[in-house]
Design a binder for these strands. Structure first.
Length: 489
RNA sequence: GGUCGGUUGGCCGAGUGGUUAGGCAUCGGUCUGCAAAACCGGGUACGGCGGUUCGAAUCCGCCACCGACCUCCA
């Protein structure tokens, strides 16, 4: 079953039918992390959002090239205490490591977290430091075309000039004139002709560790340049989807559009897709607020704001229960609810696998799949698709209780529905906590003995076994003809 | 100050001009030796004030509050 996907395009502020430029191929570029610290909750939102978009596009039959960069150049910090030191250089100094050692360390950590979240690796994961030459080439093109100028060893993009030839601000809705009216002149910008010009190449100060030779100076590329270069290098002059967090719309993506448009004469991207941000207990997540939670802390429950650990799949499911364009608030209560909801969903999946078919069906399951596709195709409405899956969960449990029946063909299509949506598209999988064969064997022995005690009406023995297991995080579920057990999430 | 987005029941979180979102929690019931699990059923909503409309939580206006961005921060 296929479906026409509609995506909200930030550029037009509308949901638009997704029509790739060269079907069945589809190109998607997503802004990846700057690897100078541990992966945190803020990284997980775009990673999961675009992982689901990637999975859905693949499921719909597109041949997708998914490019997600690693920013390993650093770029300038604007924090009061240090002016002009590169994030990665500073971290390198603090930790007494080579900059590339920092990059490697946190890139590994990012990848590990992404794998736990069950996000599929991108088709290409280019790094900014591997594309210095290409970035310099783009700068030269921009200078040649008159949209960039050198100043004291640095090169800047001429926004005024660009604005006279192309519409600047089309993505963020900003108008240069308004920006001028609403901003005060900043100090120390005498290298720039225009107040809103941005750096393409920056001359390195003497203490700056990350630097490359160029015809303008020993320095490093500007912070928007890598994405323009790497997206068009791997996806072409114009490509289908560019994604990232909403915080990147301005200036980052606006500048990307300006750079690419100025060099190519036409805009680079057809659909701009942006995920919203995460908050913690209603507040923006920031180091200064003390609510900055890394993914590893989340998985381990080791941050003081966390009452317990939340598994990667709980985090993933939690994110999917909200629409990607809404802000998502993390709280213990909400996460706990998500973990229980996920457990219910996954348990139903296992129950479904063991269901016996009947001669005919007493409930209608035929429309569920269509409604799931409808939700997903409506700008990736995962929460609504999940709601429909819970309709299926109820039916599965009813059949399991013998209160409804399903014919074999309906059973098969329901299993297919679970596989496609839960596994393939949502990327949810069973988590093996402490569960292993040996534990299962011990539990079978113990619970068999409990059954025997129950048969002899030795309630104190059977209750003791059940209560002790419960304290250990194992829920015993008595069935009509036996028992089942489950590890508490 | 500017631009954009938001304000939904105890918590999270969808959505549409008139008809049940869903999850978690809660209450009642079925089941059970008692529970748990599962199932069934119920209650609690749409920031405030106006307006449009036969009818608005859903459209318009104003107000309040919250959030993101506003140049070298990804």
């Amino acid at each position: 079953m296929k479906s026409t996907l509609y995506l909200y395009n930030t550029l037009t502020r509308r949901k638009e039918m997704f029509e790739p430029m060269a079907p069945p191929f589809a190109g998607m570029y997503v802004c990846g992390p700057t690897v100078y610290s541990e992966a945190h909750l803020g990284h997980a939102r775009p990673a999961v959002t675009f992982d689901v978009l990637y999975r859905y596009l693949v499921h719909l039959g597109y041949n997708v090239r998914y490019v997600r960069n690693i920013t390993d150049v650093g770029h300038l910090e604007n924090e009061a205490e240090d002016s002009g030191e590169d994030k990665i250089s500073r971290k390198a100094r603090q930790e007494h490591l080579e900059p590339m050692e920092i990059v490697q360390k946190y890139m590994n950590s990012f990848h590990a977290a992404m794998e736990k979240l069950n996000t599929l690796p991108p088709s290409i994961e280019p790094r900014a430091t591997g594309h210095i030459i290409e970035q310099q080439q783009l700068i030269e093109t921009l200078i040649k075309k008159g949209y960039a100028y050198e100043s004291n060893g640095s090169v800047y993009f001429d926004v005024e000039k660009y604005d006279s030839a192309y519409p600047y601000g089309i993505l963020s809705g900003r108008v240069l004139e308004d920006m001028r009216a609403n901003s005060r002149a900043l100090e120390g910008q005498d290298e720039k002709r225009g107040q809103f010009d941005f750096a393409l190449w920056k001359k390195a100060s003497p203490g700056h560790i990350m630097r490359w030779p160029s015809k303008w100076s020993e320095g490093f590329p500007g912070w928007h340049l890598e994405c323009s270069v790497m997206s068009t290098k791997y996806l072409g002059d114009t490509f289908d989807i560019h994604g990232g967090g909403m915080d990147l719309i301005f200036p980052h993506h606006e500048c990307e559009i300006a750079q690419s448009t100025a060099s190519q004469g036409h805009p680079p991207v057809k659909y701009w897709v942006h995920n919203n941000m995460v908050t913690i207990n209603g507040q923006k997540m920031a180091r200064s607020l003390g609510n900055f939670i890394t993914l590893e802390e989340m998985f381990a429950g080791s941050h003081e704001l966390l009452l317990r650990a939340y598994s990667p799949m709980t985090i993933r499911f939690f994110m999917l229960q909200a629409h990607y364009r809404s802000t998502l608030d993390f709280s213990n209560e909400a996460l706990l609810a998500a973990s229980l909801g996920l457990q219910k969903l996954m348990t139903a999946g296992k129950t479904l696998a063991g269901l016996k078919p009947s001669g005919s069906s007493t409930v209608d399951t035929g429309s569920i799949a269509g409604r799931c596709y409808e939700a997903m195709s409506d700008d990736l409405n995962t929460p609504v698709a999940i709601a429909h899956l819970f309709d299926a969960v109820r039916i599965v449990n009813l059949v399991n209780d013998g209160k409804e029946q399903l014919a074999e063909e309906d059973l098969i299509s329901l299993r297919e529905l679970f596989r496609i949506f839960i596994h393939d598209i949502f990327g949810l999988k069973e988590e093996e906590s402490a569960g292993n064969d040996r534990l299962a064997g011990v539990l079978t022995l113990l619970l068999d003995m409990r059954q025997e005690a129950k048969a002899r009406k030795e309630w104190s023995v059977s209750d003791r076994i059940r209560d002790r297991l419960s304290e250990l995080g194992i829920t015993v579920k008595d069935r009509k003809d036996g028992y089942d057990w489950e590890l508490t999430a």
